[in-house]
């Protein structure tokens, strides 16, 4: 439903959701989601709390089966396509004395799920160095992760997700614990690396504003429904009013976008402004 993006279906798609319904504990969290993402595009996922953002990620990761509908990655079932998906978690706060260097963390993304010790040697090391270079993290490659800043860790997690050459990378609220400058750095970095490597990015966030400069399309979730399109197509009073099911205004101030209105106006404004 409400899929405003039909023109691109002709192209090869990386991620395909068809008629996805999810019920959790008797409540419909996602209702009939259809979407299709192209290689190399940057998609921001926005929506108020409870709109189904985390559920959507779980479905794409194959951790949750939809009650109805299909999810395919590059034409394959998600469970068969796990190696094609990279994942950056919401938070990672290692202890200062964790015996793990930056390069060890990134290397886990390469072959962490395999049995036994790794026997890669020099080739594996070169691959890790390369991934560290993508995110400008060579400088602290041999430092303990416990002594790195939030922004530095976020870069490593991006490298960890990218090192296995995925077709699509999912980032779950990667900006939540960062200051404004680091937010901007991470967004630009992800945008650049994804673009260079032709990887599709799905970035979940509360605030769309840091993404405005890099985002190709936006996926707006509310009440179990979704609207996908460019910011100008989706973040409009009429589209969001239809999505939310009550009147919503979109206000643009100083190049920032605010969504206001409705009975639960407070949660709407806070979900999109930088509180």
């Amino acid at each position: 439903m409400r899929n405003l993006d039909v023109a691109h279906l002709r192209e090869e798609s990386v991620l395909d959701l068809r008629g996805v319904h999810v019920h959790l504990g008797g409540r419909a969290v996602l209702r009939g989601i259809d979407l299709s993402l192209r290689p190399g595009e940057f998609v921001g996922v926005i929506g108020p709390n409870g709109a189904g953002k985390t559920t959507l990620l779980k479905i794409i990761l194959g951790l949750l089966r939809p009650d109805e509908g299909t999810v395919q990655i590059a034409g394959r079932d998600v469970r068969a396509a796990r190696s094609l998906v990279g994942y950056v978690p919401q938070s990672f706060a290692p202890d200062p004395d964790l015996p793990l260097r930056a390069r060890d963390l990134v290397a886990l993304g390469l072959d962490g799920a395999r049995w036994g010790f790794s026997l890669g040697g020099a080739q594996r090391r070169a691959k890790v160095d390369e991934a560290l270079a993508w995110v400008d993290a060579r400088r602290y490659a041999d430092q303990s992760v416990g002594r790195l800043s939030g922004g530095e860790l976020q870069r490593l997690l991006v490298a960890q997700a990218l090192i296995s050459d995925p077709r699509i990378v999912l980032l779950d609220e990667p900006l939540a614990n960062l200051d404004l400058r680091s937010q901007d750095d991470v967004v630009k970095l992800v945008g650049r690396v994804a673009h260079e490597r032709g990887v599709t990015v799905v970035l979940v966030t509360h605030d769309m504003n840091p993404l405005l400069s890099v985002m190709d399309r936006i996926l707006y979730l509310a009440r179990g429904g979704a609207a996908l399109g460019t910011v100008d197509e989706v973040v409009r009073g009429d589209v969001l009013t239809q999505l939310y099911g009550h009147h919503v205004d979109v206000v643009r101030v100083h190049g920032r976008i605010l969504v206001v209105g409705g009975p639960d106006a407070e949660s709407l404004t806070c979900s999109t402004c930088d509180a």
Partner: peptide, 22 residues
């Protein structure tokens, strides 16, 4: 020896490991 890598991953970054099938 057999469990080293998945167990290490699941211990230091359980969310990512879970997402990747561990």
């Amino acid at each position: 020896a057999l469990l080293y890598r998945p167990l290490l991953w699941s211990s230091v970054a359980p969310d990512v490991a879970e997402a990747k099938g561990v």
